[in-house]
Nucleic acid binder design. Structure first.
Lengths: 289, 289
DNA sequence: CAATTTCTCTGACTGATGTCAGGAATTTTC
DNA sequence: GAAAATTCCTGACATCAGTCAGAGAAATTG
């Protein structure tokens, strides 16, 4: 371990930590406690179920409830029962809440703009910062089983289909799965890789309930490619498949996705003949567990 | 303002913020509240007066006192009256306290070592990180009038004399000023530039009590050179001199410090004949305020 | 329809942080 | 030597964050 390099890294993290402390202080200066503020930001323009919010922020149900009451009293959000299941409640921002979010985002953007002026648009520096952020996020990423119907899964799938549309030159849109249980335990699973607030990628196992499943929707965020995330997602999917007691995995893919082809071949998948009628597939693979 | 670059910067700060949050969590996992922990780290091996500690951490005197009591009860520090002035008290670490500090530093170093492995010693990345840290620290630095006898001033002066020793090839050591009042208001001042825990540079005004002063000990940390800190320190010293009602500033310097020479000339200083018997000086400057 | 489960909320509590008012010991000032 | 200033401390109080037990409403299960 070369000590001088370590000292340089320590200085770097120390400096950036001070920067982050400054940002937190600037946000706190708006006079709102950080807890409710984080909740407000998470609710965002789209709104969010209370349970999902609680999971996302990993808060105790009591604390969550009190923070939502506070935001409601301040007129920033409304919390209404879910019409389909009145036990569940849904938080949504009022115009005042949206304005508060926008103000906080502007504050963050202003600080980033200061940094931008400072770096004077130096592309070498920006590229290095991208690289550091990519490596760090991939290294510290955590994998999580999520609900395939959740907002997070939907966001991943939107990004995935946008990517496909670009690759194929055709407008793909995410359709609703005709068999929603296939992507949930015990038949299948939906895995997402994340780092803090950032979604790095996802992969799903679509099980038939007879010990077999298809790998679907392997997606890696464009910001986080080239650092082995696809491989790690596939490995995690395999591990999850074994845990679910699955014995055979299949997948199809297209010649327009060359990096995926390489990935499957390197990970020990066997190319097999066409097993479905997917008009966009050119290659079919199988793996026995 | 190019939006994509801004987004890249936002992603960078977001990722590094998550990294910092992880470090905080790792430190918190040692089971000690962050407040007393920060105090312990600040006391360090050298020990610190309670008042200086309070200033350094900008804590209320009541809170400071309680945190020190806690650390004392835990056997990590001792707090004893200053023998010269029994109102003042001095905190010093016990062996257990030093061990706790070392453990926390090791934790931080371990995380940095992980980052180092991740970057694979890539010099381009390290250089970019240095550059970003340097620019950021210099941009966010704050100037502070400090006591010329404080531990912070002594640290700056040690660094300054070490630098001089290297430039002159002679062993300089910081001597105690025969006239301690000359560096304090109303006659003079000692200014330090800092960012978070890092000391970026210093400059002092050594006044004669008759409206004249000499600029001494202009020092910029090697980590923070080349971004105009010397110029800003000199400007701050001038501003402070005007505030103190000084009318004439002088300084001497050596041909072994070419960047200082350039700086003084650019800042409007007039070169004048030798006005003192400093054997290491080759140039003398003056500025009327 | 009754029992159970799910989901959210309330109340009671703890600990960390922070503020303010004053008090005791000590030093400095007059 | 008395008054004033200083240094640090204690007590009272407030806010934020977090935990736990349990209540109440709604949905699901048998």
């Amino acid at each position: 371990m070369p000590e001088p390099q370590l000292d340089r890294l320590l200085r770097f993290t120390r400096t950036i930590a001070a920067e982050e402390a400054g940002r937190e202080a600037a946000l706190a200066a708006r006079g709102r406690p950080m807890g409710p503020l984080r909740a407000l930001m998470a609710i965002g323009a789209a709104g969010m179920d209370v349970g999902a919010l609680r999971d996302h922020l990993t808060l105790d149900s009591g604390l969550m409830s009190r923070q939502l009451r506070q935001l409601e009293e301040d007129g920033l959000i409304t919390v209404t029962p879910d019409p389909e299941d009145a036990r569940r409640r849904r938080a949504a921002c009022t115009p005042a809440g949206l304005a508060e979010i926008a103000a906080c985002q502007q504050l963050t953007r202003d600080r980033a703009a200061e940094l931008h002026d400072l770096l004077d648009g130096d592309e070498t520096l920006l590229a290095a910062m991208d690289r550091v952020a990519t490596l760090l996020a991939a290294h510290r990423m955590r994998l999580r089983l999520i609900d395939p119907d959740s907002a997070e899964a939907a966001a991943c799938l939107r990004a995935y289909y946008t990517e496909l549309s670009g690759r194929f030159g055709l407008p793909f849109t995410p359709g609703t799965d005709p068999d929603p249980g296939a992507l949930r335990p015990p038949r299948g699973a939906f895995l997402m890789a994340e780092h803090g607030e950032d979604r790095l990628g996802c992969v799903s196992l679509r099980g038939d309930g007879l010990g077999r499943a298809e790998i679907k929707c392997l997606w890696v965020s464009p910001d986080h490619r080239g650092v082995g995330l696809g491989r790690r997602l596939m490995a995690a999917a395999e591990t999850e498949a074994r845990r679910l007691g699955l014995t055979r995995l299949r997948l199809d893919t297209s010649r327009h996705l060359p990096e995926a082809l390489t990935l499957y071949r390197r990970a020990g998948w066997q190319e097999i003949p066409r097993y479905n009628d997917n008009p966009f597939a050119h290659h079919w693979f199988e793996k026995q567990l």
